[in-house]
Structures are given as structure tokens and as C-alpha cells.
Computed example of a mutant assay.
Amino acid sequence: MTKRFATRSALAATMLLLVTPAIAAAQEDDGAPPPSKPGKPISAGEVLSGELNAMKIRDVKNAGKRVAMYQITSEPRRLPAPNGLCDLETGPETFQLVTSSDAQASQLKSFVGKEISVKVDEIACASDPGQMSEAVVTKWSLVKK
């Protein structure tokens, strides 16, 4: 039993010696970028551009049926008052596109993984626990490039 304890202790000490310099180097990283400035504002009527992502989520209103949720990943943007920065330092970077019809959903389906632009008509900070994005665009239209 003592031999087993000594072996485990030696192994733990060796691992600690190997890991400690890496942890110290990570903590002393002087090349860290300066704090980000808040993103530029976005309001109704403006264009939001970014990569379109799709995720499958369970719809609580539809007996747990899996539905597609679309999200744009963009540069940080500030929302109009009272939403402001959505309790984030730089503003939201992920924007959920709420589809109001099957036509809108099928329109987005062909652009998944690609860069798109949408004209924003209504936007707000995410407030429901099931939302995967930092902000929600409830009314929008696709902008042709």
C-alpha cells in the first residue's frame, strides 16, 4: 500500500511540475488585446450582415417538436435604447432571426453557412431562457447583394 501511495505521489508531483510553467505563462500573457470598444449602433431600417447559422431546438409551444432556429454571427452592435448593450461589454454578436412564415424559413435554409444581409425592422435583447442568441430580430427582410 505504501509503494502504491509513493508511486501515485511521484506521478502527481511530476504532472504538477510539467503543468505549472504552462499555467504561469498563460497568466503572464502581456500580449492581451486592450478591452474592446462598444460596437456601432444598429436600429430599425439598418442592415445587419454576417454568417448565417442554423440550429435545431425543441419548440415548447409545439409539444417539443424540433424546429430550425436561424442565427447571424456578426461584429458587436449596440441596440437602441432601452436595450443598449444587452448587459454585454461590447454589445451582442449573435442575432436570432425569428421566422414568421414557412416561406421565410425556406428562404434562409439555402443560405446556411454563407454571408447574408438582412434589413432590421424590430430588434431587442434576448430575454427568454431558451434563446440561443444575445439579441433577437423579430421583423426583418433579406437584402439581395
Rank of each mutant, 00 (worst) to 15 (best):
P35E: 07
A6K: 14
A68G: 09
S9G: 12
K61Y: 13
P21V: 02
M1K: 11
S117V: 05
E115N: 15
T90P: 06
V143D: 04
K56L: 15
I42C: 01
A63H: 14
K109C: 05
A24Q: 07
G50C: 01
E28I: 11
P129V: 11
A6G: 12
Y70F: 03
A22S: 13
I72N: 00
F5I: 14
G31Y: 13
A13K: 09
G113E: 03
S127D: 07
V98S: 02
A81K: 12
R58I: 12
I116N: 00
S110I: 09
R66S: 12
T94R: 03
S133R: 09
A105K: 03
D102R: 04
D59F: 02
D102S: 06
S110Y: 04
C86W: 00
A22H: 09
A24V: 12
K109I: 07
R58Q: 15
E51P: 00
P82Q: 01
D102K: 05
V137P: 02
K37A: 15
K56G: 13
L79M: 01
V137A: 04
I57E: 12
Q71M: 08
E89D: 15
I123D: 07
W140S: 04
D121N: 10
R78K: 14
T2M: 08
Q107D: 07
K114A: 07
D29C: 08
K109D: 13
E93T: 08
M132V: 12
F95G: 00
P35A: 06
G130V: 10
S101W: 07
G113D: 02
S74N: 11
Q27E: 12
R77E: 00
E51M: 09
L18A: 14
V47M: 03
S106W: 01
K56F: 13
V98E: 01
V137C: 05
L142M: 13
C125E: 02
V118W: 01
F95I: 06
P129S: 10
C125H: 00
E46V: 10
A68I: 10
K65S: 15
C86P: 08
P92D: 00
K56A: 14
E115D: 15
E51L: 08
S110G: 02
G31V: 09
P35R: 07
G50N: 05
A105S: 06
D87K: 08
I72W: 02
T94C: 01
G64D: 07
C86R: 02
L142H: 06
P76G: 01
I116G: 02
G39R: 04
V136D: 01
F111C: 00
K145T: 04
K61S: 14
L108G: 00
K144Q: 11
G113K: 06
F95T: 04
G39C: 09
Q27R: 13
A81Y: 10
I42P: 04
T2K: 09
M69C: 10
S141W: 01
L16C: 13
A6E: 14
T99G: 09
L142N: 04
E89Q: 15
G45C: 07
A6Q: 15
A13C: 10
T138H: 02
W140F: 06
V136W: 03
K109G: 06
M15Y: 11
L97I: 08
S106F: 01
T99H: 10
S74I: 09
T94Y: 06
T94A: 05
C125D: 05
S36N: 13
K114Y: 04
L18W: 14
G45Y: 05
S101M: 06
C86K: 07
G84L: 07
N53R: 13
R66D: 12
T73M: 10
A6Y: 14
V47W: 00
V118G: 05
